[in-house]
Design a protein around this nucleic acid. Structure first.
Lengths: 349, 349
DNA sequence: ATGAAAGCGCTAACAT
DNA sequence: ATGTTAGCGCTTTCAT
């Protein structure tokens, strides 16, 4: 076997080296390096610190994790980091993670059950101190069975399972009120005088889509108006297709409610391309909170979701739970808001 | 000491449990589980596999990493995951990482030297199998000294240090030709008849900014035109401010070259707000490859950078090097391209 | 206040 | 083909 590369040679400094140099036992070194509460003479402490510094000692986090059973790693499962929606969440997780000394591992699942399951297992193998599921829950049965089983191992290790959406396995949650979000968006359009409101759904394999649809249905029922549904996928193309469908209609909705930002953008681009003026001909409102809705023209009116905070709060809660400071399997609900921009206008006819 | 949470109790299945159940030694279990080349009787293998399955055995990646000295974790240092520029890179890294069995740890540095240094140390503590620096290099002196020292430990562990920009410490690289990128963008404008071309720079603590500026300077020199520089920061606001500066000028450039997408977007929004028509009054070209330049109106002409591929290729190369299949400390250069959209037009006067 | 020694869960020689 | 054993680098009783 050819050695992979010859240049490497210097041995990593380990606790024993420091101990020797400081003329103490490794236990003492361990105590001062890891800030143990165990008493250590100030002089000794000094000597150890100096030796450690001179040898440029960096304790192995792996060895430490192994014995303490705390890896200080957490995994966050997202659909796609390139989706600004998830990017904001990940950033929130990462910021508080770093502050508290946690490493965050990003797992892109593309919403595929088996990929996601694979990742969950791997994170368990690494004894991740917790796992955060961003986005809505998958409904695939086999997935649920497998995942639920693996997540029990997390529980057994006191590694909290956090969800930011409604998942179908036991978990702690930090979330927004998915039904109200859409309901509020619809209400906003209704207050502007719209009644013929189209709705672009999310993909139907995700729990969030269901809940959001309920919000829309409720709003429509209240005004006694029929539902006007366009099947979406939370992607740019879904919005684009909806736009094409809409334009092909004889009787058109006067307002469109897209259940996420990406589809709203796709829809806006599609409508404009097909000669529909926003909001003169059709009003458009989205749900999300990613910045690009702001730069497009017209800037899109949105229900703002606190994405960054969702991630940050999930991470904080995870840590609290892991430290035994919070026992309830409760769901924390974060508030959403409305950002009025130029894509919506009162109905005028 | 109060136990943090009482519910947990089930012990994790370990290799020894499987060995007992299968009636073999732990070495044999190890051999079949880790797919060792060491011969194992098919019958025995079967028994082990069955036992492992029955006990739902999941080997500790931590223990394995410790003894093999391969953690199968890599860190990727980015300015900000929320920046689509970095998001694309991270996705590239992650996709090939997953395929090859690597976990990727995302570190947001916000381009701050001490944050970045902190992360590098931590990644070393975890014995990351490699580290990828996305984005341009920092020039801070103290940072460089510290980082260079820590990165030597990566070398000593045969953990490749990869950079996607021009960094000031030894590393393997996958990058674009920063000078040519800008030069090509300028050439495009020049071919459209523009001569009075403004340039929005990147922040001056980053190596990439320098290189890009050289590309601009060279293009201007070739046509004997004076440089017209607006100080930027690679952020939306930088572009916005540049727009304000430009509008306040008596004699205005006829075209603007923004050294990244975000600033181009900021600039476009700013110019439009101040009544400047793009491209009728001023042409605008950007450098990057993030999708939002496509949705804004007018869609922005850009030099396209292969961001995803930069990440993917860096990860591939990292693995190759780690396996000893590639020794050269060479830089791989990936090609850029031009995407013509609606923000540029021939000069007409 | 310090040290010795027993693990944490695994792999990799080295026997047999 | 299988088993024994010595680590990997640390923390943590349990002595002293």
């Amino acid at each position: 076997m050819t050695k992979s590369s010859g240049r490497a040679s210097k041995r990593r400094t380990k606790i024993n080296d420091v101990a020797k140099r400081a003329g103490v036992s490794i236990s003492t070194v361990s105590r001062v390096i890891s800030n143990s509460t165990h008493p250590v003479n100030d002089q000794t402490r000094e000597r150890v610190l100096r030796a450690a510094h001179e040898l440029d000692y960096a304790p192995s986090a792996l060895a430490k994790a192994m014995v303490t059973k705390k890896s200080f790693m957490v995994g966050v499962i997202v659909g796609d980091t390139m989706d600004p929606f998830f990017a904001a969440i990940v950033r929130g997780v990462e910021d508080v993670g770093r502050e508290k000394g946690f490493l965050v591992i990003v797992a892109n699942s593309d919403r595929k059950p088996d990929l996601e399951y694979q990742y969950i297992k791997t994170l368990n193998d690494y004894q991740a101190d917790g796992i955060i599921f961003a986005g809505g829950g998958l409904k695939d049965e086999e997935y649920l069975e497998n995942v639920t089983k693996t997540l029990e191992k997390f529980q057994n290790r006191d590694a909290p399972v956090m969800t930011l959406g409604n998942h179908l396995f036991p978990s702690y949650g930090v979330m927004v009120d998915n039904e109200m979000i859409i309901y509020d968006a619809a209400q906003y359009l209704i207050k502007l005088g719209h009644r013929k409101i189209g709705y672009i759904t999310g993909p139907d394999n995700i729990t969030t889509s269901e809940l959001r649809l309920v919000g829309y249905s409720r709003a429509m029922q209240e005004i006694g108006e029929k539902e006007w549904i366009f099947a979406g996928d939370y992607m740019y193309d879904g919005g684009l297709h909806a736009a094409e469908e809409i334009v092909a209609l004889n009787e058109k909705p006067t307002a469109i409610l897209a259940s996420n930002d990406r589809m709203a953008i796709g829809c806006a681009v599609g409508l404009k391309k097909l000669g529909v003026r926003i909001p003169a001909d059709i009003s458009l409102i989205s749900v999300g909170g990613i910045t690009s809705t702001e730069f497009i023209s017209p800037p899109i009116t949105s229900i703002y979701l606190p994405l960054y905070d969702l991630g940050a709060e999930a991470m904080r809660k995870l840590i609290r739970i892991r430290e035994g400071k919070e026992e309830r399997l409760g769901k924390t609900i974060l508030k959403h808001g409305l950002v009025e921009r130029a894509s919506t206008a009162p109905l005028n006819n």
